[in-house]
Amino acid sequence: MRRRVDESVGDIASLVTLGLAEPQAKPAAPPEPAPAPDMPTPEEQANELLLEEALVAAGVGKAAGDEEVIDALARLEPTEVQAVARWLKTKKPDPETK
């Protein structure tokens, strides 16, 4: 059995070329996915870990609201975070022995 071909049908590009159809608008590209909210970068995660280790070494426990401060400090440059960690780890002289 031979297949029938309908020659009156064409693709849109051919119909536009022949002047039988208007050019079709191209669909808009899908929007870029938004970054995940509050997801720290690997650098920020390393900074946060360094700060938490320094606090533990200094014997400082976290109080209410400290997590937000640690998160803010973790967004600093690594060298700045290292300085803060170093300050926390520096032994302070005992005020009674002065």
Rank of each mutant, 00 (worst) to 15 (best):
P42R: 01
E22L: 14
L51H: 00
G59P: 04
V16L: 04
V9C: 14
E53Q: 15
L49A: 15
I12S: 15
K62T: 04
P33C: 05
A25N: 03
G10K: 10
P23W: 06
P37V: 09
A58F: 02
L50S: 12
D38C: 05
T41V: 13
A34L: 11
L55H: 00
K62H: 03
A28P: 09
A64K: 13
A28R: 07
P33Q: 08
Q45W: 09
P27I: 15
E22R: 12
V9G: 07
L15N: 03
L15F: 10
M39G: 01
P35M: 09
L49H: 06
E48M: 10
P23I: 07
G61L: 07
A58T: 01
E53L: 14
L18V: 00
Q45T: 13
P35S: 09
A21Q: 08
V56I: 10
K62W: 01
A63K: 10
M39F: 11
L20E: 08
P31H: 05
I12D: 14
G10A: 15
A28H: 03
L50Q: 12
P42A: 11
L50N: 11
E48F: 04
E44K: 04
G61F: 06
A46T: 07
A58R: 01
V9E: 12
E52T: 14
D11G: 14
L49Y: 07
L55N: 00
P23H: 05
T41S: 15
L18Y: 00
